[in-house]
Amino acid sequence: MHELPVINSILSVVLKHAEANQVQKVVTIYLQVGAMSDLEDTWMQQYFDHLSKGGVAEGAKLVIERMPVVMRCNSCGHSFEINIKDGTKPVCPSCSGEKHSLVSGREYIIKNMEVL
């Protein structure tokens, strides 16, 4: 169920750009989704298929690229990727600092779309 509002937002952005560019059909939508997202590719596509029925985006395929979780060290400013699933404390590889700020990993970016 939690895919629904995100997919609705994706669809409204896609339709806005399709209308502005006088598109007849949207073929493929390229998305960048942060690794902290809980949404599954299969369900995202199924919700998209349901919501896009009857419009120019009906039948469009979602191509989802998972983006890594990137932190920036509060002490030295070094940026590094972390694996949130291994459950270990993230430590800065440059200065061993333990306080960081999230740079990316929660995004749902519509990169571009292929249209007719």
Binding site: V6, S9, I10, V13, V14, H17, N21, V23, V27, T28, Y30, V63, I64, E65, R106, E107, Y108, I109, I110, K111, N112, M113, E114, V115, L116
Partner: peptide
Amino acid sequence: TFGHAHHHPGTATITVGEDVLSKN
């Protein structure tokens, strides 16, 4: 391969670059 970018004949690519949570 999953996630590759390729072009279908007769299609055009529109750059969007919008984060869908930006409205929220």
